[in-house]
Design a protein around this nucleic acid. Structure first.
Lengths: 297, 297
DNA sequence: CTGAAAGCGCTTACAG
DNA sequence: CTGAAAGCGCTTACAG
């Protein structure tokens, strides 16, 4: 012990990894690290992993499934102890990925249809339902919804949104639906389409804050005021949403809790401890700020 | 070879790391992964590292030097091949960090006074000089500057800013200087101070976009219009700066090029290749958008 | 209880 | 040119 102190001996983690078959490395697989929502999540995961003496390897897969498979193979070669996946796949794709690795995978902030993988997320359907009801409450009738083509930010939120409107008795014909990417650019693209509609909706629900910010930008550029001419409600509550103008009314996702819980769950699985449940749906919140108003007509 | 194919054999990277004394792992050390500027930089570094078959370990140091030293020790234990540091330190602190590790370190987007470390950044002083001159050109005379307490975003940009104003003949007494953190919160804190000044400046230069966005938010909340009542010029040109209202006039940092170049440089050092120069100052750009106008008086 | 040996999965240097 | 041995830096199981 004295000698250890004296020479400041520190064991070589690579050698330990080889003998223990544990690297204390967690892989985070994400479509794009620089996405604001993911960056916050990654930051949180790193902090929680650090507490448990794990380190974190990140990887951008840039929306390409071949890339994602390659990444899983690399993580396997590197002998990471587990993966936190921030990306959705079809059930078939998911099965392909699971076959590549022999360590646990946890889904964070996303859900995969029919998957048996441990998941930490929110109730997307319920949250979108509440968002839709909020818009109805304000008096909106001609409403648009903008979603992605994936499961959580697409199917699930669209379903909840539609059910919310229906439960208020909104006519399906006065609802228009759009599909695009969860990015500033995606929002702009849809805003362009919406503007060219004959009959402008009085409110638009976006499945992500970044979409909403892009769209609001476009609306403002073209003389459409938010919320005076059009109300905007979105989803995620990234830090930024309180700093743009108008401040976004949005669904708050507990990013910190999701990151922390997903990390804890993965570590439990690595330690082969039993899980009390497979799916953790953390509480969301409807945040009312300045991007919604009553319709003018 | 046939057998390799047949059983899809893939060498264990941990074992290879042990024998080769190379892990093909790069450590990124950053104050906060979720900072927009850093997130874009990290994303870029990961992409470039991937191209060279390296993986990337990230670490939040959260502005604590003890934490940073601990991180360097962990990176050493993990036998990473090199570190890209996105954080500034005093020369003394930097020396302490250098002593911990035995592999190359590259500074990206920051500079350390008197350091001999390979660095990829922009000419902060020159860029701030140009920003100051731009404000003068618009006719501003009562000008405030907001900086951090570190070297690149503090000392260097402050120096260039002051020289720019001086070169235009602005009276030192009409310039007020502030120090805060490069975050939304830092910007809000300074905006509060500025608002309480007897004689409001007609233009404010912020050393980061995030500061500026926070401050603009505060100004707007308190009936101070940007740019009508006060012009705001900032620094970084994160993706967001084109999506807030008003769009930010700012100094463009070539984030992609910085990330790519820093990675290439580090890999060269890992391979013990010679560097053509120690410091690479990439070209910046003055981006004129909507947050600056002529002063009203 | 202490100390030497075996082994994790590779690569490299060397013997045949 | 091929194949067996040594060794990277640890940990674990076992002999003394």
């Amino acid at each position: 012990m004295n000698t250890i102190e004296k020479y400041d001996y520190r064991p070589n983690q690579v050698a330990r990894g080889l003998i223990n078959h544990k690297t204390r490395l967690i892989g985070i697989v994400t479509p794009k690290v620089s996405n604001a929502f993911h960056a916050e999540l990654i930051s949180q995961i790193e902090a929680e992993a650090d507490r448990a003496h794990y380190n974190v390897i990140i990887s951008n897969i840039l929306g390409n499934f071949e890339n994602e498979k390659k990444t899983f193979r690399i993580m396997k070669d590197r002998q990471v102890d587990g993966i936190i996946l921030l990306h959705e796949n079809t059930p078939d794709e998911m099965r392909e990925l699971e076959e590549i690795v022999d360590f646990p995978i946890v889904l964070a902030s996303v859900r995969v249809k029919d998957s048996l993988l441990p998941t930490v997320a929110i109730d997307d359907e319920r949250a979108a339902f509440e968002a839709a009801r909020y818009l109805c409450q304000l008096g909106h009738v001609r409403i648009a919804g903008v979603f992605s083509d994936s499961y959580s930010t697409g199917t699930l939120r669209r379903k909840g949104f539609l059910e919310g409107l229906q439960s208020w008795g909104i006519d399906r014909n006065s609802i228009s639906l759009y599909t695009t990417e969860c990015s500033f650019g995606g929002g702009i693209a849809v805003a362009t389409e919406i503007k060219n509609q004959k009959n402008l909706p009085t409110a638009v629900f976006f499945a992500s804050d970044e979409m909403a910010i892009g769209a609001i930008n476009y609306f403002q550029d073209h003389g459409i005021r938010v919320p005076e001419d059009i109300s905007v409600f979105s989803f995620d509550d990234i830090e930024l949403s309180g700093f743009v103008r108008p401040r976004l009314s949005t669904i708050h996702q507990p990013i910190q809790d999701i990151g922390r819980k997903a990390t804890d769950l993965l570590i439990k699985l690595i330690d082969e401890k039993p899980l009390s449940q497979r799916e953790f749906l953390l509480p969301h919140q409807v945040i009312v700020r300045d991007s919604c108003a009553n319709p003018r007509d």
